[in-house]
Simulated assay, not measured.
Amino acid sequence: MSRWEGLDEFVAVAECGSFMRAAERLRVSSSHVSRQVARLEERLQARLFYRTTRRVSLTEAGHTFFARCQRLIEERDEAFLAIGDLHSSPTGLLRMTAAVAYGERFIVPVVNRFMAQHPQLQVEIELSNRTLDLVQEGFDLAIRLGRLNESRLVATRIAPRAMYLCAAPSYLERYGRPHTLSELARHNCLIGTGDTWLFQLDGSERPFKPGGNWRCNSGQAVLDAALRGFGLCQLPDYYVREPLQRGELVSLLEANQPPNTAVWAVYPQRRYPLPKVRLLVEALKNELGP
């Protein structure tokens, strides 16, 4: 019996908090995971988990063992990756996530072109506007927009992201053009996913809470409403760049435009990034960057 046997299953259960989710991550059956953990506990002569019908939690011995096993498995996997990276050929399954609209419009086309170049790679993409836990849910890579708060992850900037306050000429003809931030309160604002718009004034960031008679959690829907002259919108550049060039929208309060945020590729910390992740991030930077 290998002394490694059961360690991957144990770490997966500890990270996922569930035998079922651990089995899904490892792509094996729940009974296999349960059997391997039970055999490991028998070898160690120690109980590693408290089990109830609703949850699984580590015992004191489990906490101690988990910290050591995580490092062992990371070192083992990184040793293989260090050699595998010499070939620089992405293989295996890559699970990634991105926001729905941005993912459909920008990320998926890049990934499809990347797949055409590396047909031995498998990719699963989950498009969701929820911020998914990469470690717990077994994702290799996420594309995130704006500002980052997650310190456990490695972040690589792949593209700039500028926010524009805009309105259609027809709206401005009817209601006038705002010239200062204080005038925004008098205008109908088209509200998207966020409750706050950010601006810059005298070198500092100024939040503004928009109010209006229209709201939708889709950037494309906000853009459509703005083009119809329903009100002001604040959207990222990739939504409004072409309508601005065609004169269908007018950029407003440019002196107060907030500092650029970014599009980020984030992934779990590893000493040696997975070749499939590293190469895809490079492809995203090349195609989506400035």
Results as ranks from 00 to 15, higher is better:
57 S>Q: 13
80 F>Q: 09
9 E>P: 04
230 F>L: 01
53 T>C: 15
49 F>H: 10
11 V>T: 11
124 E>F: 12
191 I>P: 00
72 L>T: 04
141 L>D: 09
202 D>K: 15
3 R>S: 13
231 G>R: 02
99 A>H: 13
279 L>E: 07
253 L>P: 02
269 Q>I: 04
250 V>Y: 01
20 M>R: 14
213 N>K: 00
83 I>P: 03
187 H>C: 02
244 L>D: 06
134 L>Q: 05
100 V>K: 07
6 G>K: 06
202 D>Q: 14
162 A>I: 14
203 G>F: 13
265 A>C: 00
140 D>C: 09
58 L>E: 12
274 L>G: 05
222 V>P: 02
178 P>Q: 02
21 R>H: 10
63 H>N: 12
152 R>M: 10
18 S>D: 06
99 A>F: 06
132 L>M: 13
147 R>M: 15
186 R>E: 10
150 E>D: 09
176 G>Q: 02
229 G>W: 01
131 T>M: 14
73 I>P: 00
101 A>E: 11
232 L>T: 00
216 C>E: 09
231 G>P: 07
161 R>P: 10
80 F>K: 10
290 P>W: 05
155 A>N: 05
209 K>R: 13
262 A>L: 08
274 L>T: 08
145 L>V: 05
254 E>T: 02
225 A>R: 00
50 Y>R: 15
136 Q>A: 11
208 F>V: 01
254 E>S: 00
163 M>Y: 15
58 L>F: 15
254 E>C: 00
233 C>K: 02
284 L>C: 06
220 Q>E: 14
93 L>I: 08
101 A>W: 00
7 L>A: 10
200 Q>W: 11
272 Y>D: 01
13 V>Q: 05
168 A>H: 07
45 Q>D: 15
232 L>W: 06
282 E>L: 10
19 F>V: 08
197 W>C: 03
5 E>A: 14
257 Q>C: 05
148 L>Y: 10
81 L>W: 08
179 H>A: 12
117 Q>C: 13
47 R>T: 14
200 Q>T: 11
60 E>Y: 11
157 R>T: 13
129 N>Y: 06
212 G>D: 03
235 L>N: 03
48 L>K: 14
110 V>L: 05
22 A>P: 00
157 R>A: 13
52 T>C: 04
55 R>A: 14
50 Y>G: 15
280 L>R: 06
219 G>E: 10
